[in-house]
């Protein structure tokens, strides 16, 4: 069965501008903050309707396009957290406040949060993979009473690689537990040493829990394997998959995972849809 992707209903782009399907809209960057050595948070003062987990194709004309997840959930703005890893992202990360970025989207099938009301939420992220999960966490902060318990587990490489640390306290105040690991030697008082899987050992398995997993491919594989061994069912796990993307509309074939398109059927998949 093919799931209808929610992109069409989400093509609304600010109040009066309706974003045409393949149209690139240029928006000025309203604010940039450096998050790590090579990752920056960009804010745009435009409202969009979207599900957490959806993404934009970010364009620099003459250079190319990159898929970037929306990592916020606000009525007044949206944010993208971009890590500089190659041609497009390097140039994006060198932009200044007021510079324009070309955007099309939001694309993809994200986390449809209404489906998860009353569920106990377990959020597991590794490295840059915490960006799309932050969208969920911002949603949970806003509608906290609609959900059950919330447990957050993050893993980063070193102290300097921690993302969204300034949000941690805010989330904890909203009755969400948070633990994180650093795989390198460190002196951070709150972090444990190791991989995110190390702090999952004590995670209790219950039927009402749903797990939201995002991170580098190897982290997803290892974590999912561990969760399944612990006794979670595949249908309790949601993964956000990363693939090379070009068109973002289910045509170019780059993002195919078996017979599914990561860009339109995903990037968020229930684990049993894929594996």
């Amino acid at each position: 069965m093919k799931k209808k992707c929610s992109q069409t209903k989400n093509f609304i782009f600010s109040k009066n501008k309706k974003m045409a399907e393949d149209e690139i809209v240029f928006l000025p960057i309203d604010k940039i903050s450096q998050q790590t050595e090579d990752q920056f948070l960009f804010r745009f003062k435009t409202t969009i309707s979207h599900d957490p987990g959806q993404f934009f194709q970010c364009s620099l004309l003459g250079i190319g396009e990159s898929a970037i997840s929306i990592c916020s959930h606000s009525e007044n703005f949206f944010e993208l957290s971009i890590r500089s890893v190659g041609n497009v992202t390097n140039k994006l990360c060198n932009l200044k406040k007021g510079d324009q970025i070309g955007l099309r989207g939001p694309y993809g099938h994200g986390y449809e949060m209404e489906q998860f009301h009353n569920k106990d939420m377990v959020i597991i992220g590794g490295g840059s993979g915490v960006a799309p999960l932050r969208g969920i966490l911002e949603h949970l902060s806003k509608y906290r009473e609609k959900f059950g318990t919330v447990e957050i587990f993050f893993g980063f490489r070193g102290e300097k690689d921690i993302l969204f640390e300034s949000d941690f306290e805010k989330w904890q105040k909203k009755d969400m537990s948070l633990a994180f690991t650093l795989s390198e030697e460190h002196k951070h008082p709150k972090a444990k040493k190791g991989f995110v899987t190390n702090i999952l050992e004590n995670l209790k398995v219950t039927k009402n829990k749903l797990i939201f997993l995002c991170g580098p491919p190897i982290m997803i594989t290892n974590t999912a394997k561990m969760l399944l061994e612990k006794g979670f069912m595949k249908s309790q796990i949601y993964v956000s998959e990363e693939r090379q993307m070009k068109c973002a509309v289910g045509r170019c074939g780059h993002c195919m995972i078996k017979g599914k398109y990561c860009c339109t059927d995903g990037p968020v998949f229930r684990y049993d849809e894929l594996y």
Partner: peptide, 25 residues
């Protein structure tokens, strides 16, 4: 007909085009 999307521009990057090009899985 899987394809790639590629940009071409002049050296300064001030003008150019975005192209679709055959690719192979």
């Amino acid at each position: 007909l899987c394809f790639d999307i590629e940009d071409e521009s002049n050296l300064k990057g001030t003008c150019g085009k975005r192209c679709v090009q055959w690719d192979s899985c």
